[in-house]
């Protein structure tokens, strides 16, 4: 294409900080869905955020009306419950405590997992499959993470539902009463 200076639409003049991009007869070519596939945050994002808040609050309120938070007898250092259990999110750790020296399951394992998770993006550097759920290009990474999730959740489930007095294994329907 021949360049004639007087008809160049996008003059590349380094001394100019602005230039004529395009002329269109409309309000704005960004309305609702612009060429870069964006929408204005108000109202599209903010209304969704507000609706989600109302939904979260209503659901939490319904749960709080229906179910009371647990409250046992007053703390008594001379009366040890059997089994004594930590909060559910630490039951995976407590489960591992019963396998070997507590340090390995309780301190070492969670520290190593945390460090691996934080460093994961520095090792897993491929940009393929970003922005897609369960992208087939990321099969190995997703598989490894799933193993971690299944282990974490599985150990919590064992600790919560399958461990009874003296930390023995029981079926949940055969669980002896704790007292």
């Amino acid at each position: 294409m021949d360049k004639k200076p007087e008809v160049v639409i996008f003059p590349k003049n380094p001394s100019k900080t602005y230039g004529l991009m395009e002329l269109i007869r409309t309000r704005s070519f960004q309305i609702e869905k612009g060429p870069d596939n964006t929408v204005t945050s108000w109202p599209h994002l903010l209304f969704r955020e507000m609706i989600l808040f109302m939904f979260v609050f209503i659901v939490l309120m319904i749960i709080s009306i229906l179910f009371n938070a647990p409250l046992e007898e007053q703390a008594n250092p001379s009366n040890t419950p059997n089994p004594a259990k930590s909060p559910w999110y630490f039951l995976g750790l407590q489960e591992m405590l019963s396998w070997a020296h507590p340090f390995w399951g309780g301190i070492f394992a969670p520290t190593v997992v945390t460090i691996i998770l934080i460093l994961a993006p520095y090792f897993d550097r491929s940009q393929k499959g970003v922005g897609v759920w369960f992208a087939p290009e990321r099969k190995i990474a997703n598989l490894l993470f799933t193993i971690l999730v299944v282990l974490a959740v599985g150990l919590i489930v064992i600790g919560e539902f399958f461990r009874g007095p003296n930390w023995q294994l029981f079926w949940p329907w055969n669980m002896p009463s704790p007292h």
Partner: peptide, 18 residues
């Protein structure tokens, strides 16, 4: 400060102690 609270924290404290 009920039994649930006291013994859960005792377990976690013992864990930190290892």
């Amino acid at each position: 400060w009920d039994q649930l609270a006291f013994w859960a924290i005792t377990i976690v404290a013992n864990l930190i102690g290892t």
